[in-house]
Nucleic acid binder design. Structure first.
Lengths: 106, 106
DNA sequence: TATATAAGTTCGCTATCTTGAACTTTCTGT
DNA sequence: ACAGAAAGTTCAAGATAGCGAACTTATATA
């Protein structure tokens, strides 16, 4: 079991019903490269590419990189949530935060 | 100012009182490379190296990569927020998640 | 089945990473 | 001021990323 990163990406990609080409285009790379990451394994992929892939697959870059983290657990759900939250406009962020704040005081 | 990544790393490293050599050793790289990231700028550093640096500097890899994200307060706020989130009733959690989910799609 | 189209695979090539060792500058103590 | 140590800087060279374009395999449609 060498290529944990590739396995994660492949699974997440298929879960989203994306082809190599579709994912590749979304992150601005060639489909051949995605294939090599998934199957052949790339030794040290760039943070840039991996971050773009992570964003497209709704996980954090750290989740993709960390070989120890392989299960779709609560932790991952939280990471997904983190990621999406971080991409909201600041006024939406504030509303969410206010909501959590007040509900946590009940 | 081109090299946002380098600036972030340099600042965080100094905040922790680490020299190039100390940080380099902790992440298993040469000090020259850290210096080049910080000063000369490396175009596409590997996710592996960046994740190791991020871990050592107590930030996420995504924070380092995203040029738009330059304020540490964002990350701190998020940590506090999600600690609170974790303590909500599951009913409330779901409502929050739905909200983030739908807002993040615009 | 035959053909077309989409999906996946291979590979050569250039750009970039990343290192180690030598070099220069800055600090520290006497 | 001076020597020695520590921090920072330069660079040549081998290793790897990542692309394009051609190729093969699967899937669909008639």
């Amino acid at each position: 079991m060498a290529n944990v990163l590739g396995a994660k990406i492949k699974e997440l990609r298929k879960q989203k019903g994306l082809t190599l080409e579709q994912l590749a285009e979304k992150i601005g790379s060639g489909k051949s490269y995605i294939w090599e990451i998934e199957n052949k394994g790339v030794k040290r992929p760039s943070a840039e590419k991996l971050a773009a892939i992570a964003k497209e697959l709704d996980v954090t870059t750290d989740y993709l990189i960390d070989d120890a983290q392989t299960e779709m657990t609560d932790d991952l759900e939280k990471e997904v949530l983190f990621r999406k939250f971080g991409q909201l406009e600041s006024r939406d962020k504030e509303k969410i935060m206010e909501m959590i704040d007040s509900w946590s005081k009940k």
